[in-house]
Computed example of a mutant assay.
Amino acid sequence: MNSFILFKQSLFQLTHLHQAKKMPFWKVILYVVFLSAILALPITKQLFSIMQDIKSDGQKIASKLPDFTITDGKLKTASKTEGFIYQTNSIIFTFDPEGKRSLNDVTADSVGTAVGLGLLQDEFVVAFPKSGAADSLLGANQFEIPYSKGTLDGLNSKDLKESLDGASFPFWIKLIVFVFTLYPTFLNLIFNLLMITIGANLYSKIRLYKLRFLDCLKISTYCATLPVIASSILHFINRSFDDSFLIVFVSLVVFFFATRNETRQEPPLA
């Protein structure tokens, strides 16, 4: 018995899944990682789409930029160059060589899911939409990079346009994004599996099955295969779909079928 056989049985022979109780625990953990990867696929695809949109919008913005250079801690342009604000689907960009706008102004521009970017007179600023996600992951939703620190010294419009035109996402970036989505997906699936196992263990006690809690956990993990695949497909269709209830409920139903032929204990004498 191995995980590949149990995977096939989880799709076509549900009543055989009770054999999962014989699986080594480390193989069960690896199978949870496999299921987490399935759930992470639509989220990863969504993030790739967002990254691609930002790249495309960045190229549009770069094409609108006048000639400029950052030297001596200042954004320098031709004397009559005026600032502007340009909005795309994913970015609200501010170009302000005259010093009329501040970080707070750029932050106020950031609405919905759009990221606020600003090449201001003295600094480059980034403002993410106000949400708990940005604060929890990055510690804040707005950032400043003063030109005086020299980080952006020498940057000019020509180099920026060439960099964006030739920009591409290397494989390691995509791998990092996948791992980044896999980790919270794995933790969420672990929580759902514990909920399933608690229900499955209670059902086993009522039915007088000779199953330990760990046995129920192993069987429940493979019972979750079908609802995990279904949830992943639904996520591709509807990004806001909440899969927790579906995974827990359907996995319990599958568990009932999987343990139908399980050995029962003798009921205690009255």
Score class of each variant (00 low, 15 high):
I38Q: 10
V250H: 07
R101E: 11
S220F: 05
L75S: 05
N238Q: 10
G154H: 11
V125W: 14
T221A: 09
H16S: 12
D165A: 08
E162T: 08
A20V: 05
G116E: 01
T181E: 07
S148V: 11
I85C: 02
S232G: 15
V106K: 11
S102T: 07
P170Q: 01
Q52W: 11
V248S: 08
I196L: 11
A224K: 07
V115M: 12
I85Y: 06
A114P: 14
P129A: 01
A133E: 07
I196R: 12
V115K: 14
F93N: 09
L211T: 03
D153K: 11
I198Q: 07
K8N: 09
S49Q: 10
F84G: 08
I54D: 03
S232D: 08
D105W: 07
F256T: 02
L187D: 02
A37Y: 13
V111F: 09
N89V: 12
L120P: 07
Q87C: 06
P66W: 00
Q52F: 14
S90M: 03
I43R: 08
D159I: 00
G73Q: 03
Q87T: 14
P227W: 08
R260F: 00
P227F: 08
A114K: 15
N2M: 04
S3Q: 13
L119G: 11
D215T: 01
V177P: 14
D165L: 03
G99V: 01
F25I: 13
T107K: 15
K80W: 02
E123D: 13
R207E: 04
Q13V: 02
K174E: 01
F255R: 05
S131E: 11
S36A: 15
L193D: 03
L11G: 02
I54Q: 12
I198M: 05
G112C: 08
F25S: 10
R264C: 05
V254D: 01
F255V: 00
A37V: 15
T44W: 15
K21L: 12
L152D: 09
S110K: 10
F171S: 02
Q142H: 13
F124D: 14
L11D: 00
S240C: 01
R264I: 04
W172C: 00
G139V: 05
V111P: 10
D242Q: 03
D105L: 06
Q13C: 02
I61N: 11
V33A: 14
K205V: 03
Y147S: 04
N201P: 10
L65K: 04
V33E: 01
K174F: 03
S231G: 09
S110Q: 08
L117D: 12
L47R: 12
V28I: 04
Y203M: 05
F68Y: 15
L269W: 07
L117G: 11
F241T: 02
E82A: 14
G150Q: 04
S168C: 00
R260Q: 08
I176A: 10
K210F: 07
V248Q: 03
G154A: 01
D135T: 13
Y183Q: 11
P24S: 02
F95L: 05
S220I: 00
